[in-house]
């Protein structure tokens, strides 16, 4: 475990906690895409099925359980407790446009044609595009609350740190996982535009709003 990996995981956890605290404190999920959060819950569920079959480390198990809990609590807050504040009108990304290609690709391009391996591949591909409904929602409404941009920043930072982690692992352990790396690069690219806006606007104290 290298420093990029640990910081990446911490950043991922921080992103999820920021989102939960934002919703909880404001008692509102305005501006948050429920569809993206459902996709993340689906990502963790299909990837962490190995919790039941494969023990890797205490750290690994605890983090997986925490990630699953955060994802499901977030979905519950959006579609349950605070559903009246949920902006379903603007959360209009068509999920089938993501799910159909992702399911197709996970059957075509995987390491082994077994149910668990296909589900793992599905989760990797799905994670790389799961944020799109959220980014779509921001581009549709033309703005995002500052706290929502912090959430997106840490989620993007996690991806960037994982890329550094893979470069490190390739050089030190000769380890690489091409499915994860290619999807990770794609996923990180989706955040580039947002990073630019975050640095040029939010960090200078302005609200993120699109022209």
């Amino acid at each position: 475990m290298n420093v990029f990996r640990i910081l990446g995981d911490v950043s991922h956890l921080l992103a999820m906690v920021i989102l939960l605290v934002k919703i909880w404190r404001s008692k509102s999920c305005a501006g948050i895409s429920g569809k993206s959060q459902i996709l993340f819950a689906l990502v963790f569920t299909s990837r962490y099925l190995d919790l039941l079959t494969n023990f890797i480390s205490i750290y690994n198990t605890v983090m997986k359980v925490v990630f699953l809990l955060c994802a499901y609590v977030t979905v519950y807050l959006i579609y349950g407790k605070f559903r009246k504040t949920f902006d379903s009108e603007n959360d209009s990304f068509r999920l089938e446009f993501l799910l159909v290609p992702v399911i197709g690709l996970s059957f075509l391009e995987n390491y082994s044609f077994t149910p668990t391996e296909i589900l793992w591949t599905f989760s990797i591909y799905l994670e790389s595009v799961a944020i799109l409904p959220q980014l779509f929602m921001i581009s549709k409404t033309g703005e995002a609350e500052t706290i929502t941009t912090h959430y997106l920043f840490f989620l993007g930072l996690y991806r960037a740190l994982y890329l550094a982690n893979w470069i490190w692992r390739y050089h030190t352990e000769n380890f690489y996982d091409q499915i994860a790396v290619v999807s990770g690069v794609v996923q990180t690219i989706f955040y580039c535009d947002f990073f630019y806006l975050y640095i040029t606007k939010v960090l200078k104290g302005k609200k993120l709003s699109l022209p």
């Binding site: 890797i56 997986k64 082994s112 391996e117 982690n165």
Partner: peptide, 10 residues
Amino acid sequence: KRKVSVKDEL
């Protein structure tokens, strides 16, 4: 060659 990856990452 292809092999099932070691899934120690989150």
